[in-house]
Each structure stands twice: as C-alpha cells, then as structure tokens.
Simulated scan of single mutants.
Amino acid sequence: MKYPYASSMTAILAMSLTACSALKPADVAPVASYRLEAIAPGSSPVPANATATIMLGTVRAAAGYDSNRMLFMRQQYQVEEFQQSQWQKPPAAMLMPLVAAALESSGIFKVVLQAPSAVLTTYRLDLEILSLQQDFSSKPSQVHFKLRAHLSDRQNQQIIAWHEFSISVPATSEDAYGGVLASNQAVAQVLQQLRAFCVDQVTQNAQARKKQP
C-alpha cells in the first residue's frame, strides 16, 4: 500500500538535511600565534662607578606594523597578511622587554627603566619599527627588519644620535613559521647592533662632557 504523503515527507527531510549542512560551520584551521623571543647578547658586568642611566621610551611602529598581523610580500609594493598565523602581540610590545634586556647586558648603564616612569634618567631611547615582513619575491624568502633609533640626552633635552638598522635574514622554509624563525634571528642581530650603538654614543658623550670647561 502506498502512502500519498511519503514522497513529500522524503523531499522535506532531504531539504532539511541540506539546510542543516549549509548552516554547519566549515572546518577552519586554528590560527597559530608566535612570539619574538630573540636571545639578548652576552652580558657585560656593570662597573661599580657607572653613573649613566637610560629610559626606554616609546617603541612605535609604522602603519601596517602596529598590530599582531604577520605580513608578507609576493611582489613589490603589495603587502598581504597570513590568514592562519599571527603574532601573539604587536611586534612593538614584544620588542620592548628584549631591548631593555639588551641594554641591561651592555655593562654601561647603572639603571635601565621602561616608560612610563617619573624617574629622570641620563638618557632616553625611542624606537620605531619601520618594517617586519617576509618577502617571497625571491627564493629562499627573506625577512626584512628595519628599526630606527633616537638616543637623547635628557639633561639638555637634545637628540645626540640616531640610526636606522636594516637587516635581511633568509627563511629556512617557505611558510609563516620559517618567517618567524628568521624574524627572531633578525631581531637578535639588530639588538646586538643597537646595544653597540648606545654604548658608543654614551661613551663619546661622556668623554665630550669631561672636556667641557
């Protein structure tokens, strides 16, 4: 015996199952978060008669590099972002404690502070990330890291020196994680150069002060 509504019910059920499938969220791979954890250069002992102090002020980032997005390029002038990979924090936020550790290990500063602080230090260092991105236009891909530094004498409120650090490190693999490893290497090398820059400038400034009448 045939039931007149059987075919109709089957059709309705099939439509319901199709609708449920359409509403079910697609399987999306979780977003991976990465950190900048570059190892600071080797430490030098601070002399007992050290008097120089420094404050690490602002660590800014140029437009596009002020978020936790991980950026890359496949052709000149076109910047893209990884969809399934990101920085755990904006690079500027992760860079600040790394720079502080590098300055503390320099052996020239009695005290290293991070802004904001009401304590008046001898010097102030302000930084700006100009670029941090992986470039796939060549193989192996390269991570380009540029950092600008301004060192100020807080006693006379003048910038005594500035420098732009630029370094490129080849990635070990053609993916976001290869870029993360290269980024940490690039940051480590720039930290070493930045520390040497601060030591040289502070030493020269101290010697110039001694020559003043």
Score class of each variant (00 low, 15 high):
82 F>E: 12
36 L>C: 00
172 T>K: 11
144 H>C: 09
32 A>F: 11
97 P>K: 08
48 A>V: 13
133 Q>D: 02
102 A>H: 01
111 V>D: 12
71 L>A: 10
157 Q>T: 15
170 P>S: 12
89 K>Q: 15
74 R>D: 13
74 R>I: 14
43 S>A: 14
49 N>S: 09
117 S>I: 06
186 A>C: 07
5 Y>R: 15
48 A>D: 13
140 P>W: 05
187 V>K: 02
99 V>Y: 04
51 T>A: 06
79 V>Y: 10
45 P>S: 11
195 R>E: 12
74 R>C: 11
179 G>T: 02
16 S>Y: 11
47 P>Q: 04
132 L>H: 06
74 R>W: 08
210 K>A: 14
25 P>M: 04
49 N>C: 02
99 V>T: 07
78 Q>T: 14
131 S>T: 11
199 V>Y: 06
102 A>I: 04
177 Y>C: 00
192 Q>G: 11
111 V>H: 13
193 Q>L: 13
115 A>E: 15
116 P>Y: 01
193 Q>F: 06
77 Y>R: 09
123 Y>I: 07
142 Q>S: 01
4 P>C: 02
105 S>D: 12
6 A>V: 15
5 Y>P: 05
117 S>Y: 09
20 C>N: 05
179 G>L: 00
91 P>T: 09
78 Q>R: 14
39 I>K: 13
199 V>I: 10
145 F>R: 00
212 Q>C: 11
41 P>I: 05
